[in-house]
Design a binder for these strands. Structure first.
Lengths: 213, 213
DNA sequence: ACCCACACGTGAGGC
DNA sequence: TGCCTCACGTGTGGG
């Protein structure tokens, strides 16, 4: 009678439990007795409120279980202990991940700190009257010769070589001279996999790369 | 916690029914009294076990609350709902962090993929009969001249320059030639802040650095 | 038969 | 006062 507005969404066990209880229609014995003797019928006023409270707590417990991917059993106790272990697992995971991330960030900050040591390369180049320059010449059908003079910047040489490698250009007998705030790079280059390199295209490519790094 | 020496015991079944029938609310006192005279003493056998169960569940709930930094109230219900929101927060955090890390890792994998292109530097050096070498010579009171021939490895030149910079050694007019699987590095060096460099110490330092990178 | 987990109704106590 | 939360002892169904 009191169960007719039971809109709980439960899963198998409890649902079955409740359903059987409903179907059997056996009320609790104490309640039944007090209901038979209808002269009294105390009913305690707390009954429905308490029932709502239990219901709400049950819903929340199921909610807690539903967002936990690791469930060993659907006992009330194991739901909580599973939640605890899951929270600990997540905490460790977050800690580990943020540690890794922080470490990576620290190393990048370290290199950034070193970068501040080399601010005046442009000034030095200007003082020595050195101009930036990109020259490309043909050696033979497959090979080109390049000469690059650029401002000295940290990692710039590595980045240049990497970029050329990514564009399918192979470097041979490369030479790098660092002096007076400038990089002087000379190298023979040729395309990988018999790819032909054209002089003007290559020069434009080099200038594009250099302006990016 | 203080329930161990709680000597309130249960009322017998008949007594419970009787109390319900009469609507009389004297159950707890009657319970104690029924324990005092041991002629009745039904005790239901489930009592202690159920008490243990409640106790355990309470402990676990407290445990769940203790590992949760965000607590709005220590109600039984709010503990659970706080745990739910905390788990969701942690899940989002893990997802975000792993996403960031995965992105960074993807870029570093890109560079690692490039590294596989340069596995045979040692072979090439051997084929050309090139030996690794570290030479140091004195130019004047403050300056040394160094010549280094080492196997070509990615980032090795940058690391060497960085290491020397960290050791307080300034490089001038550095020259790097890359050919036949080897790096040929020549440079003038001097100590920063008028620090004197000794030939043998410097050579040992160079060899230590090279063996590390 | 036993054991376990749950829902129940109720009184106590805090605010 | 009333409202809300909790612990209690118990009945009951499933394994």
């Amino acid at each position: 009678m009191e169960y007719e507005n039971d809109d709980r969404l439960c899963v198998s066990m409890e649902e079955f439990f409740l359903a059987s209880e409903n179907g059997c229609s056996t009320q609790r014995m104490g309640r039944k007795r007090s209901y038979d003797d209808d002269t009294r019928e105390y009913k305690s006023k707390n009954l429905e409120i308490e029932r709502r409270r239990r219901e709400k707590l049950s819903r929340r417990l199921l909610m807690l279980r539903s967002i936990n991917p690791i469930i060993s059993n659907m006992n009330r106790g194991t739901i909580i202990v599973d939640a605890i272990t899951y929270i600990e697992k997540l905490q460790h995971e977050v800690q580990s991940l943020s540690h890794q991330l922080h470490q990576i960030e620290a190393t990048s900050k370290e290199t950034a700190k070193v970068k501040t040591h080399e601010i005046d390369a442009v000034e030095e180049m200007k003082n020595w009257g050195i101009q930036e320059e990109v020259s490309v010449a043909q050696i033979n059908e497959n090979k080109l010769w390049v000469k690059i003079i650029i401002e000295k910047k940290r990692e710039r040489f590595s980045k240049l070589m990497e970029a050329l490698n990514n564009f399918g250009i192979e470097l041979m007998d490369t030479n790098l001279t660092i002096a007076k705030g400038a990089f002087l790079i000379t190298s023979c280059i040729q395309g990988k996999d018999d790819k032909k390199l054209e002089i003007h295209q290559t020069k434009n490519l080099l200038q594009d790369i250099i302006s990016d790094i």
